[in-house]
């Protein structure tokens, strides 16, 4: 486990907003019937939150769950706990038609922080960011690749992409955050 490294190993860039690769993050894909009692119970146990509503993400104490599609959730846990969480979810859902997969290593996570953080994403994503609700998880594209994003704090957005394109996504965020390109 000590050998594990994230795609960009915490690379950071300070422009008019700060872009950081967030390092290793436990992520689990859960596909199943989100209305089933068994799924609800398993999610609560693993993520500490209820099954989120359509396009919502609920985070609490370093864990949480995001709505990815009508039959898919993204469960977030600390990286070191991902394996155990996968086992626990799988055990809890035994007999239920569901799929639990560890995707911690398939993805990369980024944080864009600063008063103008939204402007960085405005340049890359065809999303109406001012209308993005608190706790809304939006799946879209960032320039030419798939991405999911949400407002993770005041002045902070979190972006998730596939791992293989981590350096592309970081490059696009960095380019968009360069000083002088603030949108007035």
């Amino acid at each position: 486990m000590s050998n594990a490294v994230s795609a960009l190993q915490g690379k950071t860039y300070a422009g008019f907003a700060t872009v950081t690769e967030a390092g290793l993050q436990g992520m689990i894909t859960l596909r199943g019937d989100l209305s089933s009692a068994k799924v609800k119970k398993a999610v609560k146990a693993a993520a500490g939150v209820d099954v989120p509503a359509q396009r919502r993400i609920v985070l609490k104490d370093g864990k949480g769950a995001g709505w990815m599609s009508p039959d898919e959730l993204l469960i977030l846990v600390p990286y070191a706990e991902a394996r155990a969480a996968v086992d626990a979810l799988s055990a809890a859902l035994a007999g239920e038609h569901a799929l639990v997969a560890d995707v911690s290593d398939a993805r990369a996570m980024f944080r864009v922080k600063g008063a103008r953080a939204d402007q960085v994403l405005m340049k890359l994503c065809p999303v109406d960011l001012p209308s993005l609700a608190e706790g809304e998880l939006r799946r879209t594209r960032a320039a030419q690749v798939a991405a999911a994003l949400w407002k993770s704090d005041r002045d902070e957005f979190t972006i998730v992409s596939f791992r293989s394109v981590a350096s592309y996504v970081f490059g696009a965020l960095e380019t968009s955050a360069r000083p002088g390109s603030e949108i007035s």
């Binding site: 396009r55 599609s69 009508p70 065809p126 939006r138 799946r139 879209t140 594209r141």
Partner: peptide, 12 residues
């Protein structure tokens, strides 16, 4: 109709 997002063509 699944996620309620009004997506533009580049997302489709």
């Amino acid at each position: 109709p699944y996620c309620g997002v009004k997506a533009e063509e580049t997302e489709l």
